[in-house]
Simulated scan of single mutants.
Amino acid sequence: MITVVGCDGSPPSPRALDRLRAASLVVGGRRHLDAVRPPEHARRIVLGDVAAALDEIGAADGDVVVLASGDPAFFGILRALRGRGHAPEVLPAVSSVATAFARIGLPWDDAVVVSAHGRDPRTAVNACRALPKVAVLTAPACGPDVIATGLAGWDRALWVAERLGGPGERVVRCAPAEATARDWADPNVVIALDEDRLGGGARVHDQPAAPPDGWARADDAYDHRAGMITKWEVRAVALSRLRPTLGRLIWDVGAGSGSVGIECAEHHAAVIAIERDPAACDLIRRNARGSGVRVVEGAAPAAYDGLPDPDAVFVGGGGLDALGGALARRPETVVATYAAVDRAAAARRLLADAGYTVEGVQLAASRFADLPGGSFRLEAQNPVFVLTGRSR
């Protein structure tokens, strides 16, 4: 029999003590083993190499107790045990995320929780860039310093919770710049807050809510200058190729009104809008209010210097040099739009020469326009070439 016991610093429950007394093998982190003090007859394994520990658990004769932080079913070892075919009894404690939010006195029903254990740190960092309230379960390769470094340029406050429930517990508030310069001891949870956007938090079960107006909003939902906006028909196709989702970083280059980047942000991607025109930057900030889009004023490709590498790039303006500079950062996906045939052809060659698989389509939409007497006509929109490059 395998029992997983959650540890949050409080004394073990009577049921957990019964399971420990009967155990022939106890597996857990060193601090959990020291706190629980398994019986002398039980063999102990300090949990470091998870795969090796799982092998030992599978080969054990007799009862096994696995000690885990907080709730073992919440980004914990329970998933790994079930993946090995085990069906353990679980005695949970208060999750470390719940404890961390309790320590700082904030509700967390509107928070998004991500884990950095065994995962690319970019996913956790991009979630912190995109959303107003994120808790990260940290890992040696993704501690407070890594998260803070990735948040340079984003206005965030960090709470770092160390050794939750233990005698050395510490919960510290700091700015990202401070977090990069400090030493941290065994952090459990990092909470990143965009304090200007707290309080909205519409959620559906455990996922961020979908955008209220759906996919590809009408052009008049945005302030723009003299029709300088990616039309909604083109935007819908571009968004479908960019695949905005939680954990991805998207650049919107030559952003204009910011419509593409804003809708990527509404689908919970982290977004940087890059625009050289100061007046257009003001438009983007006005349109993007409350969305979390970061606006960078400057001409591409020089404006790319110092920015984090994107997962996907939309190039709606800026010419071939803007596209070439983006390709040098090797995003997975690049989407570019052009009105001129010669520019579309040159961009296609540029994408192919950079090693991308290229798809292209010309979009020529006609919209209904009302006529007197209740009839209507078709009002043609300017044709647009949409190129999509995917890394091989």
Results as ranks from 00 to 15, higher is better:
L387H: 13
G76T: 05
A116R: 12
A221N: 02
L239C: 08
R79W: 05
P278E: 12
W108M: 11
S259F: 04
S10A: 14
D120F: 02
S291E: 09
V334W: 10
R377S: 14
T3K: 07
K231L: 13
G214V: 09
V4Y: 10
I274R: 07
A344L: 12
L54D: 09
W159N: 01
A344K: 13
P132D: 06
G290Y: 09
T138P: 02
L81H: 11
P12Y: 06
P144S: 04
Y356E: 11
E263S: 01
T333E: 03
E195I: 09
A365F: 14
G373I: 07
T388I: 00
A175N: 05
V361A: 15
A352G: 01
L246I: 14
Y338C: 06
R122W: 08
V358K: 11
R294E: 10
D186M: 09
C7I: 15
G58Y: 09
S95V: 01
S391G: 07
D213P: 00
H268W: 14
A68R: 02
A269P: 07
G76H: 06
E56N: 05
R377D: 07
W184R: 12
A93I: 06
D282V: 06
R235I: 02
V296I: 14
D34T: 12
G258Q: 08
A177M: 06
I2C: 00
E275W: 13
T337P: 03
L320H: 04
I191M: 02
A148V: 00
P244S: 10
T245C: 14
G256L: 08
A346F: 10
C7K: 04
P107H: 14
G254A: 05
V136P: 00
H224D: 03
R390A: 10
R285F: 03
I274N: 00
G199D: 04
W159F: 14
V65F: 11
V271A: 12
P208V: 13
G9M: 10
R197F: 01
L131R: 15
G227Y: 08
R330G: 04
